[in-house]
Design a protein around this nucleic acid. Sequence first.
DNA 1: CGTTCTATTGACATCATTCAACGCCGGTGG
DNA 2: CCACCGGCGTTGAATGATGTCAATAGAACG
Lengths: 258, 258
Amino acid sequence: MSVQQSISSNLCQHCARSSACFGSLNNTTSQTAHRSHKIYHRGESLFSMGDEFEALYILRAGSAKSICCSSNGEEQISGFYYPGDMIGADGFDSMTHSCGLKFLETSSVCRVGLKELDMALIESSSTRRKLLKNMSHALVDEQQMLMSIGKLNSEQRLAKFLLDLSERFQIQGLSANTFDLSMTRIDIANFLGMAIETISRLLTKLQHQQIIKVNRRQVILLDIQRLQQCLLVDSGISWLTDLQKLNLKNRQSASLVA
Amino acid sequence: MSVQQSISSNLCQHCARSSACFGSLNNTTSQTAHRSHKIYHRGESLFSMGDEFEALYILRAGSAKSICCSSNGEEQISGFYYPGDMIGADGFDSMTHSCGLKFLETSSVCRVGLKELDMALIESSSTRRKLLKNMSHALVDEQQMLMSIGKLNSEQRLAKFLLDLSERFQIQGLSANTFDLSMTRIDIANFLGMAIETISRLLTKLQHQQIIKVNRRQVILLDIQRLQQCLLVDSGISWLTDLQKLNLKNRQSASLVA
DNA sequence: CGTTCTATTGACATCATTCAACGCCGGTGG
DNA sequence: CCACCGGCGTTGAATGATGTCAATAGAACG
């Protein structure tokens, strides 16, 4: 499940986890264009759907969600972002943003303008690699998410969501067991393609099973192993196994006849 | 719905729709390294999940599917590819392919090695833009697909799938109304996250409604407008409308009390 | 405080999967 | 040339998971 796993670890030296940035570009050409760091608050937008694409951003602190819009006007959250994640790469396609981005809490982003970026891409092979790696990772991430929504049942989806969050908090150096959700159940439901009531019910179910403990936005994973086991249980749609089963049955009936 | 819409229009001058390529790189440095075009047949793999990432490919002719694998071992088709589409960009992340790629019919691909690509990226700003644009498009495409699976019911998903295919065939200069599916119902079901029986039922339902005509793999869209209307009918989960409804109701009951 | 947003829970309805049986087609081998 | 078989596709009946509707209650925020 995506949850945009550390999409852009290591892109900005000033930013989260102080890792190498979009370039040594600071050192060379664009010495003047120093990075702009800006603060946003809960509910504010970094950009909206359709806005002109003029920069990439890296989330330094806080969290955010990206919101897409369907043909019939419904909104869908396509990912959650945490410190270190790259934001806005969807803009290269049409040079406008296909998703809006809203902050879930007070957050800070680092802005990298397109010109600045292009120069960095010319000069630094490591920057090229990093950008491609990040976009590629976002791609892989979304594929995973597609898998999840397509093949897992509600409980598995929720379990995967929690485990992914846990992993990402751990990467940030936070607790993998105890964390606070910055998004509402409505957001989670929207993201996972389920009803909020289902989310609620499943959370309490997992709580009764002593697998997790939930109190408002605070989540404690009591037994990560059992949570992982939720994913393995084959209660979903099985595709190729389906064919295999069919083959098995055909052979069985054939052998019975014979 | 993705169906990987024309992910890489205009990337290889020798290839589909004779458009500008991954570079004028032929003209400059790597004159010797001429493109390798290779033919594959139905069922053959271009690469498998986990294979080393060593080149990007552009599909010149035919069609293909990319296959991901989930935690519990199930397979999921993450996209279909048609002439002009770029293949393999998922590899930049871990330098191994996260998906396998299998051809659905006899097909031809153009291979662009990584070194070749990197040189082109240094020399040509248009190549940089094209690659980023293509990867970004794939990203947007998958977001759309996520939206579809998350928010649309089975009929809407299938309608969107057919409409997307139609659009892509049209882009290729083929008929938008009449085309042949190169994938099986099993593939479609897997891709859309549904059961094959559901696909079958819905196809016959749409046929009875005189919206489409299906015969084996051949599909004729009799009434594209009505097919598009299928998408607009709000029979799915409505999210923000949900909140709005709630607000409305609250206000209504409030005004009733008042 | 009161309004709004969020979250929980129960009863009910329904869409989609599952299970099962059958028909079609193309290939393969007798 | 026919028979058989495996892959693919269709259809019906039954079950189940999940969405919908409704009522309630706590938290956040002004």
